[in-house]
Structure formats: structure tokens, C-alpha cells
């Protein structure tokens, strides 16, 4: 039922998981995540893989209390659709934020965090999450 993490699968996806690599359509110019062989918007087959913008705003979010097996330690999980500054939309959890402080329009930045861990013996899967800009007062 709950499968163990596949080494090959994690390896294959690492560009998107570590560096937020998505697709860019050479015809309509839109960017998207996850990458797909054909542009999901205009249908062009001319797409390339690019690193997407690492900041964006929360378009919508869900504070999730009923979680899948293996995610209880992270609950409540705030899932969000983030619209990146380059226009791509990303679905990912938010981290390092109190759920009651999340609002649509909130600026967030991408970080790499643990997403799931196969008990004491299996793999650790890292992936993109978003957090409010931190530290709030730094001049980056």
C-alpha cells in the first residue's frame, strides 16, 4: 500500500526537487512546473527545462489536518499554490510558518527540505517547499 521511496525515481526528479527546474515554452513563453514534454498551455512541443524563479506569492492554500500515512509529524501541513515571479505555478507545502499567519498574496521563497522519510532504514526524499522570506528584516 504505502510504497517505499524508489531510488531511481528520486534520482530522476532531482533537478526539479533541488533546483526548481520546470519547463519553459519557446512558443508562448510561459513557464510551468512540473516540467512536461508539451506546453500545458499552448500545446507547443518546443519546450526547454529552466530553473524557475525562487520567489513568488501564495495564490491559495489549505491548512491540512487529515494527512496521509507518514506525514503526521508534519501536520498541520499548509499546502499552497505559489505563483512564482516568472509566472510559473508550483504546488508545494509551506514551511517555517504558523498556519494562522498564512494569507493569500503572501511573499514566499523556495527552500529545500525533507519531504518524506522511509522509516529508519529507507531513503530521505528532499524537495521544494516555500517559506515566508527569512529573515524578514535582512537586505538581500
Amino acid at each position: 500500500m504505502a510504497y517505499r521511496l524508489s531510488p531511481a525515481r528520486l534520482w530522476r526528479e532531482k533537478d526539479s526537487r533541488y533546483r526548481l527546474v520546470g519547463g519553459m515554452c519557446r512558443r508562448c513563453g510561459r513557464r510551468f512546473y512540473p516540467p512536461r514534454p508539451v506546453c500545458p498551455y499552448c500545446g507547443s512541443k518546443s519546450v526547454e527545462r529552466v530553473e524557475l524563479a525562487r520567489q513568488g506569492v501564495v495564490e491559495t492554500f489549505a491548512i491540512t489536518y487529515t494527512v496521509q500515512e507518514g506525514f503526521r509529524d508534519q501536520a498541520p501541513i499548509v499546502y499552497a499554490i505559489v505563483k512564482l515571479d516568472d509566472g510559473a505555478r508550483v504546488f508545494a507545502p509551506l514551511t517555517d510558518v504558523e498556519p494562522e499567519k498564512v494569507h493569500t498574496g503572501m511573499r514566499v521563497e523556495a527552500v529545500v527540505r525533507r519531504v518524506r522519510v522511509d522509516d529508519d532504514h529507507g531513503l530521505i526524499a528532499y524537495g521544494i517547499k516555500f517559506r515566508p522570506l527569512r529573515p524578514a528584516k535582512s537586505g538581500q
Binding site: Q74, R113, R114
Partner: peptide, 13 residues
């Protein structure tokens, strides 16, 4: 560190 942090993610930041 938060629940989803470890030495690798901290080192990466």
C-alpha cells in the same frame, strides 16, 4: 531545526 530540517538542508541554506 524544524521537523523537516536536517544537517544537509541547514548546510545547503
Amino acid at each position: 531545526g524544524g521537523v523537516d530540517e536536517d544537517a544537509t538542508t541547514i548546510g545547503l541554506e
